[in-house]
């Protein structure tokens, strides 16, 4: 008896998570994405140590449209504000919108998707029919309509993006769950008389979580871009708060004389989205070894 204990411990130690991590570590491109993303996260958390927040708002009419230099790494904008400081402090808003929208959207989609996938039948039919119709309204239009109704601002854009994504998440999660529900061990659990609630939490979700995590990671990049697009259209965070999309829309007017005003915020969006997407790609490969040949 005593000899068995360390053995189970040993097995448990090499959990799925560790397994996935090990597989992902072998994927250099995915790891590069992971490190860049961690760097961006650190930049967000310690933004104030890099450049003080007031510097992102401080106007200096004598130093307008300056090209990048040692004093202003990314140059200055139409009010003479330091673009580097604005990009750094804009990270928080973009990440908040990107990750926030995905997190809440996935939770709502997860609820609907698990009900539809697990119980099937009429619930499934009603949920999916309604969502199919909702998806006939193009995503961006849906988000814009919600913002039009609620008004502009960070929180409303967040709500709009999140609600507009729910149908897409529900679909992915439902199909992930459907794949698991068909398995024999679910049948076995049912035969043992396990309550549904327990089956969903203990058996279905852990086995369906892979594609859900991949979908979540991949859509963070998408949401960051969509949030920036909303701000670019003037629907998101209102000036003077730094946000990449609204910086682009400001810079657009002056881009012929001061192209650095549009180059750097755009690069910030691209690098962030790219790092998340590379990470998501790597995660997908790590979770699904069949894709590797």
């Amino acid at each position: 008896m005593k000899a068995e204990k360390p053995l189970t411990k040993k097995y448990r130690k090499k959990s799925r998570l560790k397994d996935i991590w090990q597989r992902m570590r072998r994927n250099r491109i995915a790891m590069a994405g992971f490190f860049v993303f961690v760097l961006i996260l650190l930049c967000t958390i310690f933004a104030d140590l890099l450049v003080a927040y007031p510097k992102a708002l401080e106007q200096n009419m004598g130093e307008r449209y300056l090209t990048p230099s040692a004093a202003h790494w990314f140059g200055t904008d139409l009010y003479g504000r330091d673009i580097f400081a604005r990009v750094i402090h804009g990270t928080r808003n973009s990440l908040l919108m990107g990750i926030g929208a995905v997190f809440v959207g996935i939770t709502l989609g997860g609820l609907l998707g698990s009900v539809a996938g697990f119980f099937g039948g009429r619930a499934d039919m009603i949920i999916m029919r309604v969502l199919d119709t909702v998806m006939c309204i193009p995503f961006m239009l849906m988000a814009l309509a919600i913002v039009a109704a609620l008004g502009t601002g960070l929180v409303n854009v967040l709500i709009a993006l999140m609600l507009a994504m729910v149908p897409y998440y529900t679909r992915v999660i439902r199909s992930a769950i459907l794949n698991v529900v068909e398995m024999d061990f679910i049948e076995a659990a049912r035969a043992c008389g396990t309550p549904n609630r327990y089956i969903i939490i203990k058996h279905v979700l852990p086995n369906a979580i892979g594609p859900i995590i991949v979908q979540a990671t991949m859509s963070i990049g998408n949401m960051i871009i969509s949030a920036a697009a909303m701000s670019f259209l003037g629907m998101g965070i209102q000036p003077p708060d730094p946000e990449w999309g609204s910086m682009l829309s400001e810079g657009r007017e002056y881009m012929f004389s001061a192209p650095h005003m549009v180059i750097f915020p755009g690069l910030a969006i691209t690098v962030t989205a790219l790092s998340v997407n590379l990470m998501g790609d790597g995660l997908r490969d790590a979770l699904d070894p069949r894709l590797r040949e």
């Binding site: 871009i225 670019f232 999309g245 682009l248 657009r252 969006i269």
Partner: peptide, 22 residues
């Protein structure tokens, strides 16, 4: 494909205007 999926379309468009129009 990875790059275009990570690039905001409107930013890409602004850069294209800078290069091809300006």
């Amino acid at each position: 494909a990875m790059f275009t999926a990570s690039m905001p379309g409107f930013w890409f468009a602004l850069i294209a205007i800078l290069v091809f129009s300006l």
